[in-house]
Simulated scan of single mutants.
Amino acid sequence: MIGKKTLAAFAAAILLAGCQSGAHKGAASGPTDPELDRCGASDYQQYVGKPLSAIDGLRFEHPARAVPWNSAVTMDFNLNRLNFMGDSQNTITRVYCG
């Protein structure tokens, strides 16, 4: 019989495994769908984990926006626009087209 502590630890490990980010580019990542990557977000995944200010001064081929935590932004969906999402510490958490 499995103890309650062992079962709780196993459940916590499973839940935390689901929280891992798949945004990092690497050898294990699959091919990128060109239709969903029109803005070239796959080329900027190395900025995830860096401060939003890390993109200051960069020039982009497509429209781009840095979105600080809790900021109001338009909800229009534009696959040609590059988005850098920031968290409450102004760290980039996601880079995507839309």
Results as ranks from 00 to 15, higher is better:
residue 18 G to S: 13
residue 8 A to S: 13
residue 77 F to H: 14
residue 39 C to P: 02
residue 38 R to K: 14
residue 71 S to N: 11
residue 2 I to L: 15
residue 31 P to G: 11
residue 47 Y to F: 15
residue 23 A to N: 09
residue 55 I to F: 05
residue 96 Y to E: 05
residue 49 G to M: 08
residue 85 M to V: 10
residue 39 C to W: 01
residue 43 D to W: 05
residue 32 T to V: 13
residue 84 F to P: 00
residue 34 P to K: 11
residue 78 N to V: 12
residue 58 L to Q: 14
residue 7 L to K: 03
residue 46 Q to C: 11
residue 62 H to N: 08
residue 30 G to L: 07
residue 73 V to T: 13
residue 94 R to H: 07
residue 43 D to P: 01
residue 86 G to P: 00
residue 3 G to K: 13
residue 13 A to C: 04
residue 77 F to D: 13
residue 15 L to K: 05
residue 28 A to D: 12
residue 93 T to V: 09
residue 3 G to H: 03
residue 58 L to R: 15
residue 81 R to W: 09
residue 8 A to C: 04
residue 31 P to H: 13
residue 82 L to V: 07
residue 96 Y to M: 06
residue 68 P to C: 06
residue 38 R to N: 08
residue 51 P to E: 10
residue 72 A to R: 14
residue 42 S to D: 14
residue 48 V to L: 10
residue 37 D to M: 02
residue 35 E to V: 13
residue 16 L to Q: 09
residue 5 K to H: 02
residue 21 S to R: 12
residue 94 R to Y: 02
residue 46 Q to Y: 15
residue 72 A to G: 09
residue 79 L to E: 11
residue 20 Q to D: 06
residue 15 L to P: 01
residue 40 G to F: 02
residue 86 G to C: 06
residue 25 K to P: 02
residue 87 D to Q: 04
residue 24 H to W: 13
residue 49 G to K: 06
residue 84 F to H: 03
residue 67 V to K: 00
residue 72 A to T: 15
residue 55 I to T: 13
residue 54 A to T: 03
residue 12 A to D: 07
residue 63 P to D: 08
residue 92 I to C: 00
residue 13 A to W: 04
residue 65 R to P: 00
residue 57 G to H: 04
residue 87 D to A: 11
residue 11 A to Q: 01
residue 83 N to H: 03
residue 20 Q to H: 14
residue 44 Y to I: 00
residue 36 L to E: 11
residue 55 I to L: 11
residue 22 G to C: 09
residue 61 E to M: 06
residue 72 A to V: 15
residue 52 L to P: 04
residue 79 L to Q: 12
residue 14 I to V: 12
residue 4 K to C: 07
residue 48 V to W: 12
residue 52 L to W: 01
residue 86 G to A: 04
residue 74 T to N: 10
residue 86 G to I: 00
residue 18 G to K: 11
residue 24 H to V: 10
residue 64 A to W: 00
residue 61 E to R: 01
residue 73 V to D: 11
residue 80 N to Q: 15
residue 77 F to E: 15
residue 6 T to L: 08
residue 76 D to I: 07
residue 87 D to I: 06
residue 75 M to I: 12
residue 44 Y to S: 03
residue 31 P to L: 11
residue 4 K to F: 10
residue 89 Q to E: 10
residue 22 G to V: 12
residue 87 D to G: 04
residue 29 S to Q: 08
residue 68 P to T: 01
residue 54 A to R: 02
residue 9 A to W: 04
residue 73 V to I: 15
residue 80 N to F: 13
residue 93 T to K: 00
residue 43 D to L: 12
residue 59 R to W: 01
residue 45 Q to H: 12
residue 26 G to Q: 00
residue 93 T to C: 00
residue 58 L to W: 15
residue 37 D to C: 07
residue 13 A to E: 04
residue 62 H to I: 03
residue 12 A to L: 15
residue 30 G to T: 05
